[in-house]
Design a binder for these strands. Structure first.
Length: 416
DNA sequence: CCTCCACAGGAAGCGCAGGAGT
DNA sequence: ACTCCTGCGCTTCCTGTGGAGG
């Protein structure tokens, strides 16, 4: 058994592991100078006591949207003015109510509790802005996750009409390129007052970024040039996602550490790739609500045991695409609920779960064409079903027994 | 052709938790 | 302490929709 000091003194390939983390915002963002300057120009009016423009930033994941905006916000806050910013990720603050609540919580400490109505929160925010003639900029990251976005936009834009002093501006960030088309025209025109697109990084840009970070994160020459090129190529093939590329590098480093290597070559990057893909899925799955896990579990279990329509698909199948019919997955889900002692949800809500899972990229769905009865969706799990099944089983066995008992108690109460 | 099947997804509404107003 | 009120997760009911089968 090693001691902690032995573990800590073990040589590591990492010099500063932190710079490879997805949350790290470097002082210099390569290839984004132009975008940063533009955003600064649009935001600057707030420092001369005018309203900053609303900005809508979009581009695929890992193109530096969030990092660039946060970079500008950091610079902005360094100026001591009645100007302030409020950043939030709408994956968490995903409704008008929660967004307003977050704003009040950040700036009005005595309001830091739940239960106020929308109107109350709105009034308090207006009074706070107006009272200090403030220039508030709200950054809504992953803004497409907000359910009642139209209402949120209406509320926020209306605030400017109601304000005599100060103002409120919005910076929306989204990675859904077609997202603004589903917006109400009115909210679109206010949110998309100014637009900016972040193009994916090119392979050579990714290379440069990886080189910059690897020099900061690892010792000099710890990473093969060809390994960096490989990681850049893999990420470029995906979507030009810098976050993914950095994650590859981080994982490659961890693999090197495990084998006590002081050097990263192509092999470690290759291995990292396999790991990272399933890591990403495992992370998403672990944070999924119980019911959605059960649906996913049912789909994986069924794709292992085989669809009853297997013969049908075999004829028109493109390679291994094992599709399942929505109905049979629901039946399997019902069985899974029984097995894990959970209360099953109605089929209507089950369909909502399917949509959620698809949005997370855990499953893919297609409309049933000719060959199948009626109007059904065909489901395919996006990752190896055996792994998913095992992972969810583990999630349910570990630490969730109490929850199962609670559900059970609820069930008996119902019968009374 | 029509009818039925097996779903998709909108609308309404219900019960609950937790805070406001009194 | 009590009645409202609000948001949330969910169920119930309902109206499409497009191919299968007669």
């Amino acid at each position: 058994m090693p001691t902690f000091s032995q573990i800590l003194s073990k040589p590591s390939i990492f010099k500063d592991r932190n710079v490879l983390s997805p949350h790290y915002v470097p002082d210099i963002l390569p290839f984004r100078e132009e975008q940063i300057e533009k955003i600064m120009n649009w935001v600057a009016p707030a420092l001369k006591n005018e309203r900053a423009r609303n900005i809508f930033v979009y581009g695929k994941t890992g193109t530096g949207k969030t990092a660039s905006v946060r970079h500008v916000m950091k610079k902005f806050e360094e100026e001591k003015q009645p100007a302030c910013t409020c950043y939030m990720n709408c994956r968490i603050y995903n409704s008008r109510y929660r967004v307003l609540q977050k704003i009040t919580k950040d700036f009005i400490p005595e309001m830091d509790k739940a239960g106020f109505g929308v109107a109350t929160l709105y009034e308090k925010i207006l009074a706070w802005i107006s009272g200090g003639s403030r220039r508030l900029i709200i950054v809504l990251d992953e803004v497409d996750m907000v359910g009642d976005l139209d209402e949120l936009m209406y509320t926020l834009t209306r605030a400017n009409d109601d304000l005599k002093h100060g103002s409120l501006s919005i910076i929306g960030i989204s990675n859904k390129l077609d997202f603004k088309n589903v917006l109400d025209p009115r909210s679109r025109s206010s949110l998309c007052e100014t637009e900016m697109v972040f193009a994916p990084y090119t392979p050579s840009q990714l290379q440069a970024i990886l080189l910059q970070r690897s020099q900061m994160g690892f010792g000099q020459d710890a990473v093969d040039e060809s390994a960096i090129n490989l990681a850049a190529a893999i990420a470029a093939q995906e979507t030009g996602d810098a976050r993914y590329a950095l994650r590859l590098l981080l994982k490659a480093g961890e693999i090197a550490d495990e084998h006590s290597l002081m050097h990263i070559s192509d092999k470690e990057v290759e291995d990292a790739r396999k790991n990272v893909d399933s890591d990403i899925a495992a992370e998403i799955i672990a944070t999924l609500p119980d019911q959605q896990q059960l649906v996913l579990y049912a789909a994986s279990a069924l794709s292992l045991s085989g669809s009853k329509y297997a013969k049908l698909f075999a004829a028109s199948d493109d390679e291994d695409g094992r599709f399942l019919a929505s109905g049979e997955v629901y039946e399997e889900y019902t069985r899974a609920c029984k097995a894990f002692k959970r209360k099953k949800r109605s089929s209507r809500w089950y369909r909502e779960y399917l949509n959620d899972l698809e949005m997370l990229g855990l499953i893919t769905m297609v409309e049933s064409g000719p060959g199948m009865r009626g109007h059904t969706r065909l489901i395919k799990v996006g990752y190896p079903p055996l792994q998913i099944k095992a992972l969810i089983e583990k999630n349910f066995v570990h630490g969730k027994v109490m929850a199962a008992e609670d559900e059970d108690a609820g069930g008996t109460q119902e019968k009374l």
